[in-house]
């Protein structure tokens, strides 16, 4: 008998490179606040979703391990440096490997993780990125949604990671707020549709107005 209930792990991979300095990074912080506040009002999300934040600039690290929503503390984040998206993917894979519970005979494993990547540029660690992408695609262990923010974001790289790529026009506080609202909507939807088709691809709500799905 296990006392674990199945969790929906949610990973946020956030670009904290130099170009995010100023308004954009403040908007990201606000976004995380709003996301938490929204999810904490939803009993289904509270009972299932766990949240982790991985940030990347010239390197990447997990700033918040996978944490219960009620216990989640907003991480201290600041912007500066390059865009080590490749390393971030490696960190993600390590985290999924160590944090996400697998099914055993006596325990039901966690649901397939939901990963949101937010970046305003293109990876500067291209070699690492290429290798990491190959591994991520092979793993298929997560539903990954990538969002390219602003005109400098390169969707070609993101398309290599996942089929689900969104583009938002600007790094404005308004767009950022919409993005996080959409993330919370997606987490809510996923925590609801779990019984329908766990493990399978999930249907996310339509992206906010002004966001473009990259074909």
């Amino acid at each position: 008998m296990s006392d674990f209930s199945r969790r929906l792990p949610v990973y946020l991979l956030l670009d904290c490179s130099g170009s995010m300095m100023g308004e954009p990074i403040e908007a990201v912080k606000q976004g995380i606040k709003a996301l938490l506040s929204e999810l904490r009002g939803d009993p289904q999300a509270l009972e299932t979703a766990y949240l982790s934040v991985i940030t990347f600039d010239s390197s990447a690290r997990q700033v918040t391990p996978l944490t219960e929503l009620l216990q989640f503390k907003e991480p201290e984040i600041s912007a500066g440096g390059a865009t080590a998206l490749g390393e971030a993917l490696n960190v993600l894979m390590d985290c999924v490997e160590t944090e996400v519970r697998k099914s055993t005979e006596t325990q039901k494993g966690d649901w397939r993780p939901l990963v949101f990547i937010l970046t305003d540029g293109s990876p500067t660690d291209t070699e690492t990125f290429r290798e990491a992408v190959a591994k991520v695609r092979n793993m298929k262990a997560a539903n990954i949604i990538a969002c390219a923010a602003g005109s400098n974001a390169n969707t070609t790289y993101l398309k290599q990671i996942t089929e689900s790529v969104l583009m938002m026009n600007s790094l404005s506080a308004g767009d950022m707020a919409q993005f996080f609202a959409w993330v919370s909507g997606s987490v809510k939807t996923s925590s609801k549709s779990l019984d329908a088709k766990p493990g399978g691809n999930i249907e996310l709500p339509p992206p906010p107005q002004g966001f473009v799905i990259v074909p």
Binding site: R40, G41, L46, L70, F72, K73, E76
Partner: peptide, 28 residues
């Protein structure tokens, strides 16, 4: 939930399932 004091220890004691369901019971 909202105090993010600087000297917060890294490890927080995980909530039990009962603590979480007690909380969500008011939200359903």
């Amino acid at each position: 939930l909202n105090e993010s004091a600087e000297n917060v220890p890294e490890k927080v004691k995980p909530l039990s399932n009962e603590e979480v369901t007690e909380h969500t019971s008011a939200l359903w």
